[in-house]
Nucleic acid binder design. Structure first.
Lengths: 226, 226
DNA sequence: CGATTGCTTGATACCTCTCAACCCAGGTGG
DNA sequence: CCACCTGGGTTGAGAGGTATCAAGCAATCG
């Protein structure tokens, strides 16, 4: 069990995340001693069941954390983005697999050492605590998306979230392919593709190229994700 | 429509440290200073957006934490059971609504006071930390269930989880009605009912009365939740 | 009793999955 | 340069599953 010190000052997190999550360390944060890694696209960072010795902070790129089901399907639990911390486990092993969606650079931390530091540093323990809270909030919002019954509602919610995290709030650059989106939304690639096409026909979005989406009518998008 | 219990009149109770489920108390745990409340079935404990002054530990009964969507639907994020802690927020207000599924008794804690105590007690902060981790794990597993595409897979996963938490591992007493289950699984009450009937016809489960389910073939249930 | 509530069952429409073909851009090699 | 291949994406037709609307049933309650 990690020994976490006083961890409960209501700490404001980069929630909607306007690209702020990157300034996390500087002073008192995660130790700069972590090794920087370069991971090529589609490479595995760690696998479900591996001993959870390290955890990671993503510097550049996109990572998917996912689970492979008995029936051959894949469930993507979350997409990690720049500034996100992932792979910090409670038990001895990873509960998910982490793979690079795009070429990534990330910093690895020794879990054990950081836990010791956290016991002494209030700032650090609060920071780690914040990463956990962020993870839980995301998991709940993901469940909310998957609870929507229609494909258009799920895709709409996904696009809305992606747009909020984009620079101008409406131009989305997708690092992941349609299969990733489908496995994240609990749909098939065909349904994702069809739904995007329909949204484009309806003028809600524009898709100049398949990996780039521009939101044209944000209000209508919000209505879909009702 | 649910005929909402009028008066949410929580009476105070003699501090009977009743069914404390798992987590450590005894020394350094949550302070025993919390008020004990009795909440009647279907009463609201707190509402989304309310100031998050208190959080709660459930002593007896079942609570649902949920969200009401614009389209009139309801999303149940989790069922809280005996020993669970809920309503501990990061921000200033509750992000979900909490309602009593059955008559409940629960202990309320002042968030502010506990946060101060947690700053001093490593045991307590670890305990609260553990509650958060549990919440995140559950949210992820819920997302995993909702990611399953078929109704029988979702219902099967729900039953499997309920059976694991039961006394003998196979006799389930449901505190919630079909609507609660449906809103938790992202299905309709009719589909839930039909799926349960089919599972009974197939001999996987027995339903002597609608709120009681006995698992007959655990292996087949596991296969469904593949 | 009649009314209400929770649950089940039926019929039909709609939506998503499945299987399949096709398109397009990029890469390779003759 | 072009033929060919490949992978990602789109589109089509049909089957299957779930939502919807509706009715029926049992238990509870006034």
């Amino acid at each position: 069990m990690p020994s976490f010190g006083p961890a409960f000052a209501p700490r404001s997190l980069p929630q909607g995340n306007a690209g702020d999550a990157r300034s996390a360390n500087s002073e008192g944060g995660l130790p700069a001693t972590g090794k920087v890694l370069l991971v090529p696209q589609d490479a595995e960072i760690y696998g479900e069941g591996d001993a959870a010795v390290l955890f990671y902070k993503l510097v550049r790129g996109v990572v998917r954390t996912c689970k492979f089901l008995n029936n051959g399907r894949r469930h993507i639990e979350a997409f990690q983005r720049e500034g996100d911390v992932f792979g910090f486990e409670v038990g001895a092993s990873y509960r998910l697999t982490a793979e690079a969606v795009s070429d990534c650079s990330l910093i690895a931390y020794r879990r054990k050492g950081v836990e010791q530091l956290a016991a002494a540093s209030e700032v650090l323990s609060q920071q780690l605590y914040g990463y956990f809270v962020q993870g839980m909030t995301r998991a709940q919002e993901h469940a909310l998306i998957l609870g929507r019954r229609s494909a258009i509602g799920r895709v709409g919610a996904f696009l809305q979230g992606a747009a909020q995290q984009s620079q101008d709030g409406r131009t989305i650059s997708l690092a992941m392919d349609r299969r990733d989106i489908a496995d994240y939304l609990g749909l098939t690639i065909e349904t994702v593709s069809r739904t995007l096409s329909q949204l484009e026909r309806d003028g809600v979005i524009a898709i100049p190229v398949s990996r780039q989406i521009r939101v044209q009518k944000a209000t209508r998008l919000s209505d879909l994700a009702a």
